[in-house]
Design a protein around this nucleic acid. Structure first.
Lengths: 259, 259
DNA sequence: CGCACGCACTGGCTTAAGCCAGTGAAACAC
DNA sequence: GTGTTTCACTGGCTTAAGCCAGTGCGTGCG
């Protein structure tokens, strides 16, 4: 029989996956534990085996579980520390928490996030921005500068460049509505899920203002992470440069390493 | 009817995906082009629609195409530049080229890769290594130091730490067999596909020997990338610290950014 | 002419069924 | 006791079928 009746809002496979995820995250299914078999899940949740299988696949893709042919599906030992740049992770975080990955990470650490927008101006596109956005050099772009804090401790700086056309079409988050509605969220509202964040990483010594505002000791470099946000067609719509201390709590990315 | 006959070596869905991938990479299906519909693919390749659908999903996961409900499946405009840390990418590169992601990237640029193994020693595990490998501090680990070149130009340094138990079980690549058989490849041979590379990034000023051997100008920091290789159960078996110039061609990761 | 509706397409998701290949313990043969 | 076989499980993969929801073109109504 096919599913002719009322179309559920949320697909059954995701419903099952969410239920399993909850049981894993609550600790009911601890690390190393065996998930019920696909056939059992199908019966328990009253879905076809294929649907249960699809649910398990979603969890596998998230890195929450892994399957062993002939044995079963196990909960992963160490919860994979997904990183910022992971499109899957970003998407899920935004979907579930309604927060940007930054705010979600800070919240997870039990700290309070604050984002100050210090300026929004229109500037000629710097070379690397034009290159990534597919614009001519010096085409006008909106430049927004944010400073990110966790418990009033400065964590990173973010400078976002957005083509004026895009900024015109989607209201730009400023101090008034920061955090609630990022460009990504606005795109999502319009039915354009984020497909890709391309992440490029470099490092340099901090400039004076960065050194002061991010409270960086002498001799410590900063890491620069360039995020190019692309819609699901691969068209870039935003470039953000995040700057943070190389040796300290850049939250998800950076850790101290002494070899 | 079910597929009762001879079991194919390679699943049909992957066969179809490979065929489509070839058509995309050859340019026959250019960027922006519409793929044949799922139903058409099913007919053309003589598989069920679900199988064709599965093939398309594989390509979607790779970022090669994207789907629009009601419209069709399009070839992505910009080939997503997958990064080193991506488990999917690493796995596919290793499967298809038999090379490490580093060598594959250098080859893609038409350059010649060389890796020098300068030392293999047994040392007490440094703190961050012990932490990541789940060992007690100062437990003995094998330490291998490699220097990576592209066209004889120094690109990066890599220091790998492996628990003696693991190194004992799987012969360690040294100068004699470098490049052919990395630990990852050897694990794969044993039927343990790589599930995760966790990547952590920081930066610092170069030490004297690094500055000299990597030909780093004054004032330029180095980026340190820590890869923790974990098997598909999430058990870490290797920690590698890559060090490279922050401002120059670290191949996949690093790019010059002037704001 | 302009607009609304129908219709033929697209992917999204689900069902029910079945074969295959690994896994490991229990039953069996020697 | 010591293999060896059997068998009941696991996930892997495929088929055939069908409903749903978007999309956009063409037809026909007003």
């Amino acid at each position: 029989m096919t599913k002719s009746s009322h179309p559920d809002q949320v697909p059954a496979s995701r419903r099952v996956a969410a239920a399993l995820r909850a049981r894993i995250e609550s600790g009911e299914l601890a690390a190393g534990a065996l998930l019920p078999s696909e056939r059992t899940l199908a019966e328990d949740f009253d879905v076809a085996r294929n649907t249960a299988r699809e649910a398990v696949r979603l969890l596998t893709d998230e890195g929450l579980v892994f399957a062993r042919h002939g044995k079963g599906v196990y909960v992963r030992e160490t919860r994979k520390l997904m990183r910022f740049g992971s499109e899957r992770y970003s998407q899920r975080v935004r979907e579930e928490t309604g927060l940007s990955p930054y705010r979600a990470e800070v919240a997870k650490q039990g700290r309070t996030a604050r984002v100050d927008c210090t300026s929004i101006t229109t500037v000629p596109a710097p070379g690397f921005v034009a290159e990534r956005l597919g614009l001519a050099a010096a085409d006008p772009v909106i430049r927004r500068e944010n400073w990110y804090f966790a418990d009033d401790e400065p964590v990173q700086r973010g400078v976002t460049f957005i083509p004026v056309a895009v900024a015109g079409a989607t209201p730009l988050a400023d101090s008034a509505n920061l955090g609630k509605g990022s460009l990504y969220a606005r795109f999502a509202d319009q039915g354009y899920p984020i497909a890709t964040i391309r992440e490029e990483i470099s490092a340099r010594m901090p400039r004076h203002d960065e050194k002061e505002r991010l409270d960086i000791p002498d001799g410590v470099p900063v890491i620069e992470v360039v995020h190019t946000g692309m819609d699901h067609e691969g068209t870039p719509f935003e470039v953000t440069v995040f700057t943070m201390r190389a040796d300290t709590n850049g939250l998800d990315y950076t850790i101290p390493v002494q070899a």
